[in-house]
Design a protein around this nucleic acid. Sequence first.
DNA 1: GTTCCCCTCCCCCGCACGGGGGAAGGTGGC
DNA 2: GCCACCTTCCCCCGTGCGGGGGAGGGGAAC
Lengths: 216, 216
Amino acid sequence: MRVAIVDDDPLVRMGLRAIVSSEDGWDVVGEAGDGAAAVALAAQERPDVMLMDIRMPGVDGLSATREIVASGSATRVLVLTTFEVDEYVFEAMRAGASGFVLKRVPPAELIESVRVVASGESLLFPASTRAVIERFATRGAERLPELSEREEDVLRALARGRSNGEIAAELFVSVETVKSHVASILMKLGVRDRTQAVIVAYESGFVLPGETSERR
Amino acid sequence: MRVAIVDDDPLVRMGLRAIVSSEDGWDVVGEAGDGAAAVALAAQERPDVMLMDIRMPGVDGLSATREIVASGSATRVLVLTTFEVDEYVFEAMRAGASGFVLKRVPPAELIESVRVVASGESLLFPASTRAVIERFATRGAERLPELSEREEDVLRALARGRSNGEIAAELFVSVETVKSHVASILMKLGVRDRTQAVIVAYESGFVLPGETSERR
DNA sequence: GTTCCCCTCCCCCGCACGGGGGAAGGTGGC
DNA sequence: GCCACCTTCCCCCGTGCGGGGGAGGGGAAC
């Protein structure tokens, strides 16, 4: 296992190095103190896993992660943070990090985390997982008003960017029918136009990013 | 710790009961073989954690989870599945489950999982976490074409359901200017109308569900 | 200097969209 | 039997939106 360590604090790097290199067959193949150096290090050493701090002078850890992932590197990035509930968790996920864990976890857990992301899986710390799940659940403010079956069909079509004419063709009905369904949807959702209806569809979880375009 | 077990297979229930009750101070306060019984059980016994199978005859585990969570119960639902990559993970998250783990994990891990969700945190199995992160990252097919700063402002406004006139007022420019920005956005994104632009904004991660409406 | 691109603003045009009416058959509840 | 709702279809009308032309100023690159 070849591990790289990125943190602007030399003390933290030393601590991480001690933990990682204590494991049999594990090597720390390099250290970096900022994002730019991290990108270069990833390209040079091609480590299996890179432990990445977020807050660093110059190029931050998220930008560095984005670059490394975008470069097609096989290196997995495990983001380390100081605070439990870190707003950066979503950004880190979008940047392509394979995991998001606390710096102050017991060494054994950190080792295990590295092993997990190296295996191609991903992992989040419980508090982060909770935040993610809550975003999905949108607990509380969700629930669309009751839409009829046909209206849901039409709303799904709207959320795929279809025009009234296209929806009519897909559902084998006339454009007028589609228009009347759209009008009902707008009224029930309390919105002005199809664009706002699509926004409500996304915000309520009626459709999820990724489930419309990729599947089939 | 008071735990309830929901699974249609008596054998599985026995196995889970054995694991749970082997822990000091932990009690299995009830079992259920289908979703309807699970909802009733949650209301009666108010367990700390409910281990919930998904596939069951009659009312399935997801519907039961939805009901229990919607009822405002303090019971945390930990969803158990047989297969690693289960399409139901997103549904479970949306239903309000606190976790999603494999049935065949070592007993010690299952116990630990129950402890985690009981503490109010959430947890997903690595393979599930990976799927979730990939949905966020939308690795590969993402990246909006380069939009100018102003165009990003306009796209953000579009994603909030604003009309051209409203955007003009918000950005202190004329409607014509907004129209020309919108036209550039449509061209750059390769879409037909503002609705499709909003869809691209969501699908690409340019905006995330939850970040527009709730914040501020 | 020239050459881009961005941002701003303006014109005309056509049409899809949304709002206002309505009407018909089918299903299900009371 | 009546009423409510869904689904389907039709009319008219106004306008917001998108497509097609531009044009001028400013800043960065070269």
